[in-house]
Design a protein around this nucleic acid. Structure first.
Lengths: 147, 147
DNA sequence: TTGTGTGCAAAATCTTTGCACTTCG
DNA sequence: CGAAGTGCAAAGATTTTGCACACAA
């Protein structure tokens, strides 16, 4: 997993400034497993950088998303939260119980895509896939509760 | 594709009332190929039932979604638009050029899901998949433009 | 020193709620 | 007739914008 310093170095490399607010949001993004809204990120970021404003959280998250370090999650209701993201083409797997988000790669959809292209005549260019279920920890908990 | 009358009959069957506003929103939902926001649906619905209010559009779309006749689309930005939906487990294929939405079924992800379950230990319960690309009509147009 | 980045306040959106009036059944 | 459904206005929530000031580089 990428480190805070690497991201900040990347910022600097792009001619962007490394500020306390950006540092704080970046840290919060990497610190947590779950998808959080800009407002939640902002609250947590205040621990590292008191006085950070919500607007800055919005702007910084959008920036980090453009650079590929954050991704918006599109679960049933909340399309408004961000998770840390590795670079490249990845997808997210969300725990329906604790909210933890885990990435996975290597989504081989080629058979499916070919079939759908043949059936519909579309030329498919993008896909968006999100999986949800129970993480190992929450499965255990659920089993213990059931006894 | 299901008809307006069938949906309205279903409403009545559930003990819900068939009103002018519901009829209008239902018609708009079935009339269009594209995903539309509640506000857009409301505007279009006024042609069939002048004076319909935005709030009613919100409420009716939520109702139709619960009954399975509409689905929210989760494309990159707009997670706020609805499309007509057939019953059962289907996915959407969106034309990036004209916005037309086509459904497809039979998403066989079992290999992928098994692999991800094995890798992560998650018990996967749900998946959300959306494809995007160019519909046949827009492909032709693009080719003609290129010449 | 300079201009990017920030915070605040305010505006613009989008969505939900409360309530009296309509209207379907 | 009675209760579900509607529209309006207002409240809430979320996101964006404008602008003066702060502070990385």
């Amino acid at each position: 997993m990428i480190s805070e310093d690497e991201i900040l170095a990347q910022l600097a490399g792009c001619g962007l400034r490394v500020t306390g607010a950006r540092r704080a949001i970046t840290r919060v993004l990497l610190e947590t497993d779950c998808a959080l809204t800009p407002a939640q990120m902002c609250d947590l970021a205040r621990r590292h950088w008191p006085g950070i404003g919500l607007v800055t959280a919005y702007r910084t998250l959008e920036l980090l998303a453009q650079l590929g370090y954050a991704r918006r999650l599109h679960s049933e209701d909340g399309c408004h939260s961000y998770v840390r993201a590795s670079c490249g083409h990845r997808h997210d797997l969300i725990c329906q119980s604790c909210g933890r988000v885990v990435e996975f790669e290597g989504c081989d959809l080629s058979d499916l895509l070919q079939r759908v292209e043949a059936e519909t005549g579309f030329a498919i260019r993008q896909h968006m896939l999100e999986l949800a279920g129970l993480c190992p920890r929450c499965q255990e908990l659920a089993e213990r509760m059931a006894q």
